[in-house]
Design a protein around this nucleic acid. Structure first.
Length: 303
DNA sequence: ACCCAGGCGGGCG
DNA sequence: CGCCCGCATGGG
């Protein structure tokens, strides 16, 4: 996706506590398909039939971001919503700074935000994520978009990008065609989930439920288990108390808080709920990013 | 060649 | 409840 429209809108806004690079590099759903350039600190992503271009500007005191899009008003609204710029990160930090370890992570990754993504997109991304690795999830997701997403048009009917596939588009796809994108055994979960999300549940309506009820509903989807349901709740519905426990989180919590002693997923959930409460999901993202960016070297796994 | 990945469903005791 | 297994595929 490139910015090659003829007429383009542009606006700059100031934001406290925002680091686009950390946010993107912490492997949230947006990361699985949007293009981020680390040198220019620019993100390009599709949203509701538009291409949005977001750049982190050189900042003195307080961050500034530049937003470019053909539909600039919509783009500004979308960026604010998508990156949850209305959250007061300083008060969230205050709430989860329960120990020196978390304080350190917050200091290291200050400005990393939890993104808010379309529920179906989030569901698809995390079904693809199971028993998989991040670079590969990216590849599969991009091939799925190229194959099943609809075109996004700029001026003069020129195609400027592809939209993330809608659930009905995946529901209509053959399992074979999804396997061809590299989804492997997850393909059958995906078509079933797509059908379920198209015909059996109103994903937008689920947003009105509170976290426990929402999770129960999500667990009805085949291919969505405890961990993926928490990811959808956190990244798709903004339930900041959701604390997805994957292999990284399990290892890092065991290492940082239990001196390397093995703990069950259930015990880790209880620990996180007690310790970080309604912002556990935010704490989770800082732990996760610490893990995938080398925080487990030595005692645990490499990478 | 080798290991493992932002797990899940199903089957078992 | 807990445990164990198979699962498709390719990045590192």
């Amino acid at each position: 996706m490139h910015i090659n429209y003829d007429s383009i809108g542009y606006r700059e806004i100031g934001v406290k506590h925002f680091d686009l690079g950390f946010t993107i590099r912490s492997a949230q759903p947006l990361t699985f398909y949007a293009d981020y350039d680390r040198v220019s600190r620019t993100l390009v992503y599709p949203s509701d039939g538009k291409i949005i271009n977001l750049r982190e500007l050189e900042s003195g005191r307080g961050r500034r971001i530049g937003i470019a899009s053909k539909s600039i008003d919509y783009a500004v609204y979308d960026v604010k919503r998508r990156f949850r710029l209305g959250d007061r990160l300083s008060s969230i930090y205050g709430a989860i700074s329960t120990d020196a370890t978390m304080e350190g992570l917050i200091q290291n990754f200050s400005g990393m935000r939890i993104t808010l993504n379309d529920p179906w997109e989030t569901t698809m991304c995390y079904i693809l994520s199971q028993y998989n690795n991040i670079p590969r999830i990216r590849g599969i997701t991009k091939r799925m978009i190229a194959r099943f997403g609809s075109d996004i048009f700029g001026d003069h009917d020129s195609v400027v990008g592809k939209a993330f596939p809608k659930s009905h588009e995946i529901a209509a796809a053959s399992e074979k065609s999804i396997v061809e994108c590299g989804a492997g055994f997850r393909a059958k979960y995906l078509v079933e989930a797509a059908d379920y999300c198209t015909n059996n549940i109103d994903m937008a309506r689920l947003g009105k439920l509170d976290y426990p009820e929402l999770k129960d509903e999500l667990l009805q989807i085949k291919g969505v288990g405890d961990k993926v349901a928490d990811c959808i709740a956190l990244f798709g519905y903004g339930k900041l108390e959701a604390f997805p426990v994957d292999v990284w989180i399990k290892r890092i919590v065991e290492r940082l808080y239990f001196r390397g002693r093995k703990k069950s997923i259930k015990e880790i959930h209880r620990f996180a709920e007690d310790k970080w409460g309604r912002y556990a999901g935010v704490a989770q993202q800082y732990l996760f990013f610490h893990g995938i960016s080398g925080g487990l070297e030595g005692n645990g796994k490499k990478k």
